[in-house]
Computed example of a mutant assay.
Amino acid sequence: MKRIATVILGAALVLSLASCSKLGLPGKQSASPAPSESGMMEIKTSTITGTINRMDDYLVLLLDNGDYQIFDFDKGLDASTFAEGDKVEVTYTGVLGDENATPVATKLVKQ
């Protein structure tokens, strides 16, 4: 009798975990952005301010708290009017501090 109850309890546990992941409940979260009304995927952008420390084919930004952040440039971004020492606001995609992926600067505005 205990063996049958254990099997039934185990099956119920497996089914409940499987149903949670299908419904998007805690246990499995989607990492992909949600589609917009037009059907295109929206990419989340953020902004940060700092001083340009180095400009090459990438940007090193000195933040107000003394930390440095490296950004790649978006293909369409023209950074030729900016120089080291400029105080700028950077609009970017990605996550700051992620060692596996460098955030991408999509817009630079002088402050």
Rank of each mutant, 00 (worst) to 15 (best):
L13F: 04
V14F: 06
L15R: 01
L15W: 02
S16Y: 09
L17M: 12
A18I: 06
S19G: 08
C20L: 11
S21R: 14
K22Y: 10
L23T: 02
L23N: 08
L23M: 10
L23C: 03
P26R: 13
P26F: 13
G27Q: 06
G27S: 04
G27F: 04
G27R: 13
K28V: 09
Q29V: 12
S38K: 15
S38N: 15
G39Q: 05
G39N: 11
G39A: 12
M40P: 01
I43H: 08
I43F: 13
I43W: 05
S46M: 09
I48R: 02
I48F: 00
I48Y: 03
T49K: 09
G50Y: 03
T51Q: 09
T51N: 03
T51M: 03
R54D: 09
M55G: 00
D56Q: 05
Y58T: 00
L59C: 05
V60A: 00
D64Q: 09
N65Y: 02
D67M: 14
Y68E: 15
Y68L: 15
I70R: 14
I70F: 07
D72Q: 09
F73V: 01
F73N: 02
D74Q: 13
G76Q: 14
L77F: 07
D78C: 06
D78H: 03
A83T: 04
A83I: 03
E84P: 05
G85Y: 04
D86M: 09
K87V: 02
V88L: 08
E89L: 10
T91Q: 14
T91W: 00
T91V: 12
Y92Q: 07
V95M: 14
G97E: 01
A101W: 07
